[in-house]
Each structure stands twice: as structure tokens, then as C-alpha cells.
Design a protein around this nucleic acid. Structure first.
Lengths: 161, 161
DNA sequence: AAAGTGGGTTCCAAAAGAGAACCTGTCAAG
DNA sequence: CTTGACAGGTTCTCTTTTGGAACCCACTTT
């Protein structure tokens, strides 16, 4: 299977990964959420090869996750900012970061902490149910076919038993 | 930069991606969350090359995200199950899936929906602040150096202005 | 004895990535 | 009016990673 085929898959994860499912892309987005906007900033902080960075920025802009804004004319200089669509990736990235804080941090603890501007405290994101407001974990969830389900969507273990 | 160097980075996202930051790895994990456990199931549902699948399962097991369980001896057959560490990736994967439901689904809507067993309703995950319980979005957060911060951790735009 | 099953490994060709050099406007300094 | 710097790329070669298919092995069933 090719990566370009992923966005035709009947699976939201596959379709998401066709846009951001690349290691460098996610690292670039992390930098965006930390306030970075320019080619040079991404390059300096990530140590990414320049042509790979150019490719990822272009694809993210085409996907509508980042938008180019000229901050100067003659010579034209553009910076890349998160769109609303891009900002909505925050829960996913926060999930990955918090998992890293928990399982991959050294003995010292997390390298960065997040402060909730509204309440002023150092916080973690907690996933709750949109309907009842209770915290949700993997085991609390069952999946069912949704409106856009296709033939091959529902999980069907091949196991005979 | 090599991927093996990522886990030495002072960034939880980079360290997380050194384990799961690969397209196939995330697809394999999706299948795990849908209840798949066996080599053949992953292969049939994903269309992944067999040696890539073998490599990813091995790395996930080494990382403690999946655990091998023998379900039969002679011939020995093993299946792969999510550990607690693996189950804790659910918020991250849910974030990616919901973003796909929102932005990448066709006109029909999401291919799968999630039912919260506790309250019985079709739900979405909502990220709230662990301290005040309010929903959190990207703009509500500020980052600060944490206990494990290094020299290069804090975001510092290179922009002169 | 022959075929099937689950879970791999080995081969080769194609694609993606790393690293470095080079290009393009534009301004500012000598 | 040449030299250099700066931001943002593109082009080059070389290595690593995939994709796809074939093969292997320890059993079990027919």
C-alpha cells in the first residue's frame, strides 16, 4: 500500500496519517504549537534536512493545516501559521506529548509543563466523554459502524475461535 | 538526525515518536485498539509488507507497548496484546481519529463511532484541564520549563523582532 | 504423502531521507 | 559597483527504508 492511497481508506486514522502521519510533520507541528513560524526556525530547532522541511511545509499548507502569511515584501518572506484546522490537532499532539512525559521522560521528569491560562495552574489534558463528562479510557469504549462506514470498516478478527 | 537519536531529545514528542512515530506503527496500534491481536489479522487488514509488520511488532513489544502471549504450544503461536502502557496511547490515537472524522471524512460522515460503555451514548473525547475541569484548546495553554528541562528545551523564536 | 496454517525471513527494485552545495532576490557596507 | 549577508529554497549524490514477492519451518489435517 502506498501512502497516497491512505486518504481513500475507510478509516479516520489512516486519513489523518495521510496528512500528518510522518515523523517530521509531527515535529514541525510541535514547533508550530511552540510558536515557531519560519523556515529557519524549524530548521535550526529540528535539524531537519532542508528539502524535507520544504516538502513538509508545502504539504501542510496544501492540506490547510498551516497557512502562509507574508510578513515582508521585497524580498517576499513568508511564515507559516497554524490554521483552525491545524490548531485542532492539539488534542492529538497533547496526547502524544503526555504519553512521552509519562513513559519516556528521564528521572528528572517532563522537559516542559503546560500552564492553563484560564486557571493559572500547571495541568494535564484529561479526556472525558462529551455526553456524560466522565474520564474515558480505552476499555470504556466500544466502536460501532458510523454513517460513513463501508464494507471493510468494522473490526472483524480473523481468529477462528 | 537519525530516528534512533530522537529518544535522546529533550522533548516528549520526539521521544514518543521514537516509539510510535511511524505510520505503520500507528496503524498497527489502531488495529490493536479494535481488538486485533495476530500477525495474520494485522497483515490482512492493513496490507502491510510482512517484514515491515514483523519489525514493527518486535519494536512495539521491546518498547513494552505490546506484550506477546502464547495462545498455543506446539507449534508455538503468539499474539500481541496492548499493555497498560499501550492502552495509555488511547488519548493520542483518539485525538488523531477524531481529527480525521472532522476534517478528512467524506460527506457521509465518520466511518466508525465510539460508544461510551458507561453511559451508553455515542461520544467524542473532549480534552479538559486536570485542575479546573474546563475544556482546553491550543490557545489556552502556555508552556514553561519543567523539571527535566535542558538548555535547548524552551521555545525561542529566532525572529529578530 | 500432500496440502494447509501461522509466523516469520530473504531477496531485489523502488522510494524516501541525510548532508552538502548551489541558486535567487534584496539590502547594506566598503 | 562589488562583496557579503540573509531568508528561503532547489539540486545533487549517497544511504536507509519500503513494497512486493518468494521462500522457510514447525506443526496439523486430509
Amino acid at each position: 500500500m502506498r501512502w497516497e492511497d491512505l486518504d481513500r481508506e475507510h478509516c479516520s486514522l489512516a486519513r489523518t496519517l495521510s496528512v500528518v502521519g510522518d515523523r517530521w510533520t509531527l515535529m514541525v507541528l510541535r514547533e508550530c504549537f511552540l510558536g515557531m513560524r519560519r523556515f529557519e526556525e524549524f530548521e535550526a530547532r529540528l535539524g531537519i534536512a532542508r528539502h524535507v522541511l520544504a516538502d513538509r511545509l508545502k504539504k501542510l499548507a496544501e492540506a490547510g493545516v498551516l497557512a502562509k502569511h507574508a510578513y515582508q515584501e521585497r524580498p517576499r518572506r513568508e511564515e507559516y501559521r497554524l490554521t483552525e484546522k491545524g490548531l485542532d490537532l492539539y488534542p492529538a499532539i497533547l496526547g502524544l506529548v503526555q504519553w512521552g512525559d509519562r513513559y519516556m521522560a528521564g528521572a528528572e521528569g517532563a522537559p516542559l509543563v503546560r500552564v492553563h491560562k484560564t486557571c493559572g495552574k500547571v495541568m494535564d489534558g484529561v479526556v472525558v466523554c462529551s455526553e456524560c463528562g466522565e474520564p474515558v479510557q480505552a476499555r470504556d469504549i466500544r466502536v460501532e459502524a458510523g454513517p460513513g462506514a463501508g464494507d471493510e470498516t468494522l473490526p472483524r478478527p480473523v481468529r477462528a475461535g
